[in-house]
């Protein structure tokens, strides 16, 4: 959904793990799932500190 976020003008966008579970994944072990969630949240925190001039997607692989 990141293209929609860009279109509507959200300024700092972190690509997450999917529409049905943006901050998790039922396919992972509980430990791995939490580590994934932590990575996404930490990326969001770093994005908040980053200067942006237009809608910017962080964390594209």
């Amino acid at each position: 959904m990141t293209p929609v976020a860009v279109m509507v003008g959200a300024n700092r966008i972190v690509s997450a793990a999917g529409i049905i579970h943006p901050l998790g994944s039922a396919d992972l072990s509980p430990e791995d799932e939490k580590a994934l969630r932590r990575r996404i949240v930490e990326q969001a925190l770093q994005a908040l500190r980053t200067e942006v001039a237009k809608p910017t997607v962080f964390g594209r692989e």
């Binding site: 943006p22 901050l23 925190l45």
Partner: peptide
């Protein structure tokens, strides 16, 4: 279904608290 199983998949209170 998946976020009802574990609300943290939507709102990451667990890792935010740890941070």
């Amino acid at each position: 279904t998946w976020v009802k199983q574990d609300p943290h998949r939507l709102v990451p209170v667990d890792v935010a608290r740890e941070l």
